[in-house]
Amino acid sequence: MTVSSNMQELDGLPAFDFPDADAEAEAKVDADAEPKAKLPDAASVAWRISVDAYDSEEEWESAFARFLKAVDTTEVRALIVGAWSDAYDSAPDEVIGAIIAASDQLPCLRALFVGDITYEECEISWINQTDMAPLINGLPQLRSFGVRGGQLLGMTGVKHERLRSLTVETGGLDAAVVREIGAAELPALEHLDIWLGTSGYGANTIVADLEPFLTGARLPALKSLALRNSEIQDHIAAALAGAPVVARLETLDLSMGTLGDEGAEALLGGQPLTHLKKLDLHHHYLSEPMRERIRATLEPAGVIVDLSECESARGDDWRYTAVAE
């Protein structure tokens, strides 16, 4: 599976596409036509700014500059960075620089996502990224940050006192980035979501690299942990069976990966999970008896269990993550 559609919302706000340059020009010159729809209130939507993914006539920074002039940015709460030109070949350093330079104009910005790019624009494992630490650290008012694409991604020296949610979506994440996230100083972080991906697209994480998340010692506020879209899902499940962090989680997410009966057996045989509000295992390779055992163990305690997308019904021995290329 690939990422086939853009984000519909961010931080509880519906996504809204800021008009491209041609649409804006048409709205200005076509005075005799029917009135154009007005832009929504700045605080009411998550603003998505994108340009053509291939050979765009406008650079993303130019579109962002138009946005800064057209919208009351002092009220903007959420921003989505869509495609920039040739994301498969160029890192978004200018994009990051433009946002940091405009930080004083975005005092209410609470949520930011970089790389809302579909497979038709650029496959997830082809998206070139860059070190996100200057951006995260440069926006101290942020509460939620997400990024898609692991190529050249960095998280070196992330330090943020208020960030509550961090999401990293990849088809293959280098273990060095995982370790950088593990070393980050994020005392307020409540939700961590990492798509580890497959070795065919650069993933090389081993369980030892996940130790900071398993102990939770550096994440005192963590309530929701997602280590997913991984081809080592059984090993992760086994490690979580005795991981100290689990006892204080409300949500545990091992979805989108290659979880099979071996991993589920280890997870159920470890510490109790009945305190969880939700256990998300969708897109898995569990047998029907194991699925029934999970339900019988957790659902009577009120745990919401997502066992949808049973891939074991495919009838082959090869296991796939939900998102790779």
Rank of each mutant, 00 (worst) to 15 (best):
residue 1 M to F: 06
residue 16 F to K: 07
residue 17 D to P: 01
residue 18 F to Y: 15
residue 19 P to I: 02
residue 19 P to Q: 07
residue 19 P to G: 10
residue 28 K to M: 13
residue 29 V to W: 14
residue 35 P to L: 12
residue 38 K to W: 05
residue 52 D to S: 14
residue 53 A to F: 09
residue 55 D to L: 13
residue 61 E to M: 00
residue 64 F to P: 09
residue 69 K to S: 14
residue 70 A to C: 10
residue 72 D to A: 12
residue 73 T to E: 05
residue 76 V to M: 07
residue 86 D to V: 00
residue 90 S to M: 11
residue 91 A to R: 13
residue 94 E to A: 15
residue 95 V to I: 12
residue 99 I to F: 04
residue 100 I to E: 02
residue 102 A to P: 12
residue 105 Q to F: 06
residue 108 C to Q: 15
residue 110 R to Y: 00
residue 114 V to D: 03
residue 118 T to Q: 12
residue 119 Y to G: 03
residue 125 S to C: 15
residue 127 I to A: 03
residue 127 I to M: 12
residue 129 Q to G: 14
residue 131 D to F: 11
residue 134 P to V: 09
residue 137 N to C: 11
residue 137 N to S: 10
residue 142 L to H: 06
residue 142 L to A: 06
residue 146 G to K: 02
residue 148 R to M: 15
residue 149 G to H: 01
residue 152 L to C: 10
residue 158 V to R: 03
residue 162 R to A: 15
residue 166 L to Y: 10
residue 166 L to N: 09
residue 168 V to S: 03
residue 169 E to A: 11
residue 174 D to W: 00
residue 175 A to K: 15
residue 177 V to S: 02
residue 182 G to N: 06
residue 190 E to M: 08
residue 193 D to G: 06
residue 193 D to K: 09
residue 195 W to A: 12
residue 196 L to I: 15
residue 202 G to F: 01
residue 205 T to N: 05
residue 208 A to P: 02
residue 208 A to G: 02
residue 212 P to E: 11
residue 223 K to P: 02
residue 228 R to M: 11
residue 232 I to F: 02
residue 233 Q to P: 01
residue 237 A to I: 04
residue 240 L to R: 02
residue 241 A to I: 05
residue 246 V to D: 04
residue 247 A to R: 15
residue 247 A to M: 07
residue 253 D to W: 01
residue 254 L to T: 01
residue 262 E to I: 13
residue 268 L to H: 08
residue 269 G to P: 08
residue 275 H to I: 07
residue 276 L to Y: 11
residue 279 L to V: 08
residue 279 L to I: 10
residue 281 L to C: 10
residue 285 Y to R: 01
residue 287 S to E: 09
residue 289 P to E: 10
residue 290 M to A: 07
residue 290 M to W: 06
residue 292 E to H: 14
residue 298 L to E: 05
residue 299 E to H: 07
residue 302 G to P: 06
residue 303 V to D: 00
residue 304 I to R: 14
residue 305 V to N: 02
residue 308 S to A: 15
residue 309 E to C: 08
residue 315 G to N: 10
residue 320 Y to D: 12
residue 322 A to C: 11
residue 323 V to L: 09
